[in-house]
């Protein structure tokens, strides 16, 4: 990743993301279809064009935390820790979006904001775990140990995901079903809008992580200057 200092590429990217977000909103509001027949084609169902891409982006973030954790433990290169923290922060941000948009849909569709739905619950558990992750970074002591321990935590957190998901799936087999529709059953219009938003969110995620790493590097440089290196 090259630096943020040459402002050109980041600025162009930011403009593209803003245009995509605006266009995405317009398309979702005015042109997109609602897909769930059982729920009676609720307009509120359009929130899924944001809910699902947020969830995918959050999991992408946490996946990167795990990869960065493995790489950090292998190489000890500070770069991997910075990638890990930045991904954890914005993974958690998108996680929060999932946890906000989920209940909005729930209220409209089922008349109650929270249901014990396995995927929503897995997201909540991950969210809580990552609150702990940030606390560990805060209270863990000196940076070098914190970096190592949070790398380990990032790895075990992601390992836990499939077990959490499976157990919740069996656990809530009798509770409210989540609209779960196969990708292949969707009309191409629905899919196009969905993938457009997914692309926007992924780009936004990359941009945020990139910017965050830039700030972390500046902080590191500032620290090095104060120590007179």
């Amino acid at each position: 990743m090259n630096s943020f200092n040459s402002k050109r590429i980041p600025n162009i990217m930011a403009v593209i993301i803003i245009i995509m977000l605006g266009a995405g909103l317009k398309i979702v509001v005015d042109y997109s279809l609602t897909v769930d027949k059982e729920a009676g084609y609720l307009w509120a169902q359009k929130i899924f064009y944001y809910h699902v891409p947020s969830a995918w982006t959050a999991f992408l973030g946490y996946f990167i935390v795990m990869i960065a954790g493995v790489q950090f433990l292998r190489t000890g290169n500070r770069k991997w820790d910075q990638i890990g923290v930045a991904s954890a922060e914005f993974g958690t941000f998108f996680c929060l979006l999932v946890l906000i948009t989920g209940p909005i849909w729930g209220q409209a569709a089922w008349g109650q904001p929270w249901t014990w739905e396995p995927r929503l619950l897995t997201t909540l558990i991950l969210f809580l775990l990552y609150i702990g992750y940030f606390m560990l970074r805060q209270f863990g002591g000196h940076y070098e140990r914190v970096a190592r321990n949070s790398a380990v935590l990032g790895i075990i957190a992601f390992l836990d995901v499939p077990i959490v998901y499976l157990s919740l799936k069996f656990w809530s087999a009798d509770t409210q079903a989540h609209p779960q529709l196969g990708m292949s059953e969707q009309s191409s219009l629905v899919l196009n809008v969905f993938f457009f938003n997914l692309a926007t969110f992924t780009l936004l995620f990359i941009y945020m992580v990139w910017y965050r790493i830039h700030i972390l590097k500046l902080k590191q440089k500032q620290l090095e200057l104060t120590h007179g290196l």
Partner: peptide, 20 residues
């Protein structure tokens, strides 16, 4: 182990992990 507030951090990290 060596974190400040380890007595609080331990359950905060353990409970979500152990939920399944």
């Amino acid at each position: 182990l060596r974190a400040r507030m380890s007595e609080v951090l331990l359950p905060i990290l353990l409970f979500p992990l152990v939920s399944p």
